[in-house]
């Protein structure tokens, strides 16, 4: 049951990402709110969807993520479908030792890209709060959704296994290394988030979709964003 659910949810997310990036009728933006699928907004017009310039990094970051690898190896490849079950395929097993799956080792590069994208998402939230009426602060359902989304995405991004290694996990001796203790603290913080990496992975994926759907509905004029301005 679990593998089937994972397949369904991941396939639905992928399908939704393709739809919103290429077939949803241009940039998904409404007032101060910009969809996370389009942020940062590079080349808003042109023959190619502006989402394409950005979307590859979070998608590849998730595709090579250690947690998602477990999820799709079990669910899509049935390698194995569950710990107590034998595998259903009987060809030569190569794991991540050979092409193409050894490319998952490039995870850290997509991490670098996604950290930049996450910075832009925080900037979008800042703009959503402060841009609209110059000197005023807007509090609305949309700002709340965008803030929750970027918090969840940050929890996922900054709990990454590769980041955990890069900030300090790769050191053997903290007390006698340059910035060793600072790196140990950073490693400890990342480790806290990393302990719930699967949870962050799922909830952030849903929050991205929910945020995008909400902005689509605003963009389509289905309803207006309830908000107050201070």
């Amino acid at each position: 049951m679990l593998p089937t659910t994972v397949v369904a949810v991941l396939a639905a997310f992928t399908g939704y990402a393709i739809w919103t990036a290429f077939f949803a009728g241009g940039v998904n933006q409404s007032g101060p709110y910009l969809s996370p699928f389009y942020s940062p907004l590079l080349w808003a017009s042109g023959p190619i969807s502006p989402a394409l310039w950005v979307l590859w990094s979070p998608l590849l970051f998730r595709a090579t993520c250690y947690y998602y690898r477990k999820a799709y190896y079990r669910s899509f490849f049935w390698d194995p479908p569950a710990c107590t079950l034998s595998e259903l395929r009987h060809r030569e097993y190569r794991g991540e030792a050979k092409f193409p799956l050894f490319l998952n080792n490039l995870h850290r590069y997509f991490l670098y890209a996604v950290v930049v994208v996450t910075g832009f998402l925080w900037y979008d939230v800042f703009l959503a709060f402060f841009q609209p009426s110059g000197g005023h602060v807007q509090l609305g359902v949309g700002t709340g959704i965008m803030l929750a989304n970027v918090l969840l995405l940050s929890g996922y991004t900054f709990g990454c296994h590769s980041l955990r290694h890069l900030v300090g996990g790769g050191l053997d001796c903290y007390s006698n290394s340059g910035a060793g203790m600072a790196r140990h603290r950073a490693w400890s913080w990342v480790s806290i988030l990393n302990g719930r990496h699967a949870m962050w992975a799922w909830v952030s994926m849903f929050s991205v979709v929910i945020t995008d759907i909400y902005i689509h509905l605003l963009h389509a004029g289905v309803f207006t964003d309830p908000h107050v301005v201070f």
Binding site: Y66, R69, Y73
Partner: peptide, 27 residues
Amino acid sequence: LGYCNITKCCTEVCPEHIHITDNAIIP
């Protein structure tokens, strides 16, 4: 090491609750 595809069954069965995948194999 490359043959491990981090499906975490080892972690699930460890009676000492060692996070084998997260704290040993992935590092």
